[in-house]
Nucleic acid binder design. Sequence first.
RNA 1: CGGGGCGUGGCGCAGUCCGGUAGCGCGCUUGCAUGGGGUGCAAGAGGCCCCCGGUUCGAAUCCGGGCGCCCCGACCA
Length: 587
Amino acid sequence: MRMSQHFGQTLRNAPAEADTEGYRLLLRAGFIRQLAAGIFSYLPLARRSLTKIENIIRQAMNDIGGQEVTMPVVHPGDLWRETGRWYTIGDELTRFQDRNERDMVLAMTHEEVVADLVRHEISSYRQLPRLIYHIQTKWRDEPRPRAGLIRVREFTMKDSYSLDQDEEGLDKQYRAHFQAYFDIFHRCGLPVIAVRSDVGMMGGSMAHEFVYLNEIGEDTLFICDNCGYAANREVATFNRPEAIDEPPQPLEKVATPNTPTIEALAQFLDIPKSKTAKAVFMMATVADETGNHEQFIFAVVRGDMEVNETKLANAVRAKSLRPATEAEIRAIGAEPGYGSPVGVHDCLIVVDTAVTISSNLVAGANEAGYHYRNVNHGRDYEAHIITDIVSAYAGAPCPQCQHSLKAVRGVEVGNIFKLGTRYTEALGATFLDKDGQSRPVVMGSYGVGIGRLLACIAEHYRDENGLKWPITVAPYQVHLIVLPGDETAPIAEKLYVDLQAAGVEVFYDDRDERPGVKFKDADLIGIPLRLTISKRSLEQGGAEYKRRDSDERSIVPLDEVIAHVQAEIKALQAVIDTEVKPVPFRA
RNA sequence: CGGGGCGUGGCGCAGUCCGGUAGCGCGCUUGCAUGGGGUGCAAGAGGCCCCCGGUUCGAAUCCGGGCGCCCCGACCA
């Protein structure tokens, strides 16, 4: 492409809304433009990089047996009613009516359509396993888009769906994706880690996220530097301290004026927070045959720990949780700020395991200004559910090796889910097995956010002058600059033509601009290799060659330029290839 | 949904408190000079001051209502 013909310009000043550096550079270099909150246009440079990313993904998917399809962006609402998600998903699912007043939705994901296809196309075990995928626009009306391309409302995603007879087949395809995803991200030059994650609104039995570790991310992860344990905050566990073998003491009511918080209580009684039990009151929305209803949840955790709402919601199979009101708290016999499970009624008591192995805790007396000393689970109250409902924290002991966990931020660029039969059962997508038995197809779903991946690469490969694309995803391979001089123009023109004829992707700056402008733009756009034809370079015997990631410049004789460039591209590619290697599966 | 900020040529901003001819830098156009790190000089083009209503002789500025964008939180396959 001749830069004189190129659509899109570089900017000296980035628009004010750009807050992360990678986003600023993508705007300044003319890759993307924002149309509305969380809605972007991709200009030619970005489009070329996206196409390369997509093709890397296509190859990886095809390599594990994937077949590309395209599924619609607009779905009938009835299909989403059949799986129940019409009712369970809130405003992030955009609904509208067509001219005949039929309910429609904008696709935020495609499980429904896949299951619908499956029920029409798959009838026999002979047609399984299968893997289909597509690269398609999705719409999620996020409450708060942010950080440029990291969290958007309209986005392109590769999503694949595995179809199997049984769990065993699913596991095989799941593991194939696990490796394929590492291959994809490594070919794009992006370092990622895989972490266990919550299955969330997708439902299912196992899920991993692929995370690019960076402060701009909005996922909090807990990782162990010692053994490699890594998990999303939503599911991260840690090793509970050993039970303190302390004989139960008699229950004792004590006056504790003005101590509605654990902080104040521990200070007032001069005890560590770990010797207290904290009551957290939530209202859970639970669905059963009769529809949705609310259930009061009385969660008990040790005073030094925090309730993890995802874990709690999973423990009680709630669709959603909200804090209980003071009136609701009093209605079960508790008192805000002084609550304990001792003597409450009409609620589901969920107790964290750390509480059940601790004895003689201080807990509320369900009366303002009073607490009980020596509260013991099993003697003073019974839990309905005992499980892990607290968040891991920085410094907590690793569940695998006891080493101290570290909290880090990251961006989720991909995920893999074992869905099971949730969607196929709901839609009646069944097949006949060898024995003639009708069984639901077992599904997995696997996503990669394409734009988000581009944004992460931009964030990772940059310096103070601009972007520095890895060769595999760079919009062009070579940035050719021509500077004024008697012979420079015809030589550069010929080089431009010859490089392209040799299969090299060239971005040719043929504009009438000052040298400084051209060099600044080249650095900003970040194409990996740069060639300059100038009076000076010709005097020195050829073209000046420079890599974006190095300050070294060299002169390459004109008749060797093409071979040199091809060799350099190959060398850069080889560096990427060494990163693409098997990664052991961690469940 | 709660809290905060912002909305003025393409981009970045000043002007708003205290109402009186709409400004600056960058970019853009033209010319001359320059020609290896966003060059210099000169002359230009370009604005429903987010929208609607109100107050006023007069509103970018004051008042009311809306919309949009950004940040923090809530939320988030």
